[in-house]
C-alpha cells in the first residue's frame, strides 16, 4: 500500500471505523473457519466413542476412548482390503494417465495441423461425457478383455478418464516449450523418445504435478464407478467399501467415522504438506476449462 492510498483511506474513514471494520472481517473469517472445522472435529471425537455413549453424550469428549473402533474398521469394515486397493488403483492410474496425457500433449503441440486441433477437442470433450452413460457398456468391454473382478476394472477406466483433464492442462504447456531446444537435440541425433523423456518431460514438471493432483484427488474419492464396477471388498476402493458395509452396521457411528477418517487422512496429510500445489493444481483445470 502506498502513502497516498493510506492517507486517502484515513480521510474517508475514522480510525474507530477502521478498527471495527477489521474486527468484523476477522470475525467473518473465523466463523467461516469454524463452520469448516467444527464438523471435522466432531467427527474425530465421534470416531472414538462407543455406541451407547454416542447417544447419551453426543457432544462431549468420550469417557472411554474406543481405539478399538479403528482396529475393527480395519477388519470389519474391510479397510485392510480397501485401503491397499485405493493406494494401488490411485497410484498406478495417476502415473500412467499423467504419462499418457503428457505424450498426447507433446504429440499434438508439435504440429499446427488441423488434425491436432480436432484430436485435442475430442479428448477434452471427454469431460462432458456423463459416466452413467458409458458405465454399463464399459462393463461389457471390461468383461470382454477379462479385467472384470480385478483391480484393473478400475485402473483401466481411470487412466482413460484422467486424459481429458491432463490434455486440457498440458497441451498449452507443451506448446509453449522452446522449439530451438528440441530442434537442437534432434540435430545432435537424439531419437524422438529421448527428446520427449529427457527434455520435454522435465520441462513440463509443474504441469505434471498439477495433473497428478487433479486426477489423484478424484480417483481416490471416486464413488460411482466402483459402486457399479467393483462388487466385492477385494476389488473395492474405500468410499464404496465404507458405504456398502454400513448397511449391516447402521448404528455403529464410531465405526463409520473411524473408517471415514482413515479414508480421508492420507489426502489431508498430502494437502497439508503441499497446500500451494493442491490449490493451484486443482484450480488450473477449472480456470482453463
Amino acid at each position: 500500500m502506498t502513502q497516498t492510498q493510506t492517507r486517502q483511506l484515513q480521510r474517508s474513514q475514522s480510525d474507530l471505523g477502521i478498527l471495527m471494520g477489521k474486527t468484523a472481517r476477522t470475525l467473518v473469517l473465523l466463523v467461516a473457519s469454524i463452520w469448516v472445522l467444527a464438523p471435522l472435529i466432531l467427527m474425530i471425537i465421534a470416531s472414538f466413542k462407543s455406541v451407547p455413549e454416542f447417544f447419551m453424550n453426543p457432544f462431549g469428549l468420550p469417557d472411554e476412548w474406543m481405539f478399538s473402533n479403528y482396529s475393527r474398521a480395519w477388519t470389519d469394515a474391510n479397510l485392510s482390503l480397501t485401503l491397499p486397493n485405493t493406494i494401488i488403483v490411485t497410484t498406478v492410474a495417476v502415473l500412467v494417465s499423467t504419462l499418457l496425457s503428457s505424450m498426447i500433449a507433446y504429440g499434438l503441440s508439435r504440429k499446427k495441423k488441423k488434425y491436432a486441433m480436432g484430436l485435442y477437442t475430442l479428448f477434452v470433450s471427454g469431460l462432458l461425457v456423463p459416466v452413467q452413460a458409458i458405465i454399463l457398456p464399459l462393463f461389457i468391454v471390461l468383461k470382454a478383455i477379462g479385467f472384470f473382478g480385478t483391480l484393473m476394472a478400475l485402473i483401466f477406466p481411470y487412466i482413460a478418464m484422467g486424459l481429458p483433464l491432463g490434455v486440457l492442462v498440458l497441451t498449452p504447456i507443451a506448446s509453449a516449450l522452446p522449439h530451438e531446444l528440441i530442434q537442437a537435440a534432434r540435430m545432435d541425433g537424439a531419437s524422438e523418445w529421448q527428446i520427449f523423456s529427457r527434455i520435454v518431460l522435465p520441462l513440463m514438471k509443474p504441469g505434471l504435478i498439477s495433473v497428478s493432483i487433479l486426477n489423484g484427488v478424484w480417483m481416490w474419492n471416486e464413488f460411482f464407478i466402483p459402486l457399479i464396477l467393483a462388487f466385492k471388498p477385494e476389488v473395492q476402493t474405500m468410499p464404496v467399501g465404507i458405504v456398502s458395509f454400513i448397511g449391516a452396521y447402521s448404528t455403529e457411528w464410531g465405526l463409520v467415522f473411524s473408517s471415514v477418517i482413515v479414508s480421508t487422512l492420507p489426502v489431508v496429510i498430502a494437502y497439508l504438506f503441499m497446500t500451494r500445489q493442491f490449490q493451484s493444481g486443482l484450480t488450473a483445470g477449472a480456470v482453463k476449462g
Binding site: 499418457l100 496425457s101 505424450m103 498426447i104 507433446y106 504429440g107 499434438l108 508439435r110 504440429k111 484430436l119 475430442l122 479428448f123 471427454g126 461425457v129 452413460a133 458409458i134 458405465i135 457398456p137 464399459l138 461389457i140 468391454v141 478383455i145 483401466f156 477406466p157 487412466i159 482413460a160 478418464m161 486424459l163 490434455v167 524422438e192 520427449f196
Partner: peptide
C-alpha cells in the same frame, strides 16, 4: 508425432468412445 498420441488414444477409445 501421432505415435505419442496413439497409446492414450487406445485407452480413450476403449473406455470412452466405444462405450
Amino acid at each position: 508425432h501421432l505415435w505419442f498420441v496413439l497409446p492414450g488414444f487406445a485407452f480413450f477409445l476403449a473406455v470412452m468412445l466405444i462405450p
